[in-house]
Design a protein around this nucleic acid. Structure first.
Lengths: 225, 225
DNA sequence: ATTTAGGGTTAGATGAGGCTAAAACAGGGT
DNA sequence: ACCCTGTTTTAGCCTCATCTAACCCTAAAT
């Protein structure tokens, strides 16, 4: 049996892999999980012993197939919980992350299935992130791109807001930046800050690069080439 | 912050106290939690340091007020979860215990409140056990008595089936022994076995003392003197 | 090719929570 | 009063996940 902590490491490595395509460095994992590097090194030893990561000393790790499956299971739990909490327990999308983070390790297969049933097999969570399917096959990358890659005048649809910080999410919700809304890009500053106007709001909203980076958007269907 | 394990000890001591009125012995806790006596001794040291139990060496423990409050909080979580799982997630009353046992330590105050709201502030769980109120005041003992204290010919209403074993609970459900049903006592053997007939079933059911002991019943209102 | 800065790993300690084996105690029977 | 029996505690050890301090490797810069 895998400990909660090991699951956290696998999940973190998976998420970091989605962002970089390179081998994941010890320090990146340490920062993500808020532990020290030596702690990560020793955990990587154990994960390697169990065949969950491929390791090259001093050169980072990648998940094995098995490791990826475990990560996907944890992420499936997490996102199903987020969806369930917002749909059936009156949670706000900004506050579900923390709760799901604690519960994700402690639910049974049965619970997972009942929750998925109650939600009618959902495919995305409240932030627009894809929920891995029950077979835990590696999902394809969703389409769309970071909002930072568009220019002034572009009109886009918000697909996903992947930030985990409740404060940031509340701010975004207050300014109409949520999955599904239409955004008109007003300005992209050289240092990455994006200013945009939500179709549902009168005033514009500015997102520093670190936030904008987590906002994935797509071109509306009717505008495509 | 209290660890999950400490919460488990406090809960176990609380439950044992409901049964005996005497100081709780190390060996009783050890058996309840399936650990060895020395392990219990060292945990009792720690609980005493934190003011959660009153201890007399070689003579068992009792909970302090603070310890009792913690135990009640855990039990409230457990029973709310059991109720929620059966009401809203299609669980069978026989299978909720395990799931609740794992989740009870990991839900927030917020989650507790939302679940209680969804159930409209329930006062009993699916086994008929009282759910401690949100203020965590020590509840009074419910009325009724163990079914073993009645005699042939008595007719009683099942108030609570406090067994935690899913197999046993399934068996009881199959034979119509559930909270709310009427039971006619057929026989009480000298070694404590109770044979009874549920109003909803044709054949009778026999409960060995260890099982019958967990079935709390009350005299139907219309028969009271 | 060498240096060097910065990150990675090793070594050793800590605190939880568990175990077994051995010593110490409480309480009943004589 | 004494001893015997059974339970509790003490002593010492283990594993896990974490830390700090010290050492080592890689890769970029010269």
């Amino acid at each position: 049996m895998l400990s909660d902590v090991m699951e956290d490491y696998l999940k973190a490595i998976y998420q970091l892999q989605r962002e970089t395509d390179e081998r994941i460095k010890t320090s990146a994992i340490a920062e993500e999980l808020d532990v020290t590097s030596p702690t990560v090194t020793s955990m990587l030893d154990k994960l390697e012993d169990r065949g969950l990561v491929d390791r090259e000393k001093y050169r980072g790790v990648t998940l094995t197939g098995e490791g990826e499956t475990v990560a996907l299971e944890v992420i499936r739990h997490h996102r199903l919980l987020e969806a369930y909490l917002t749909e059936h327990l009156d949670y706000d999308w900004a506050e579900v992350h923390e709760e799901a983070d604690r519960l994700e390790h402690h639910i049974s297969e049965n619970f997972e299935a009942r929750v998925a049933d109650a939600l009618d097999q959902p495919t995305v969570d409240p932030h627009g992130s894809p929920i891995p399917s029950a077979d835990l096959e590696p999902p394809e990358r969703p389409d769309g791109a970071s909002v930072t890659e568009f220019d002034e005048g572009d009109v886009v649809i918000v697909e996903e807001v992947a930030d985990r910080d409740a404060e940031v999410l509340s701010y975004l919700a207050d300014h109409g930046v949520e999955p599904g809304v239409e955004l008109e890009i007003m300005e992209v500053a050289p240092f990455g800050m994006v200013t945009a106007r939500s179709s549902s709001h009168d005033d514009s909203v500015s997102l520093p690069e670190s936030v904008a980076h987590h906002v994935r958007v797509a071109v509306p269907a009717e505008l495509e080439q």
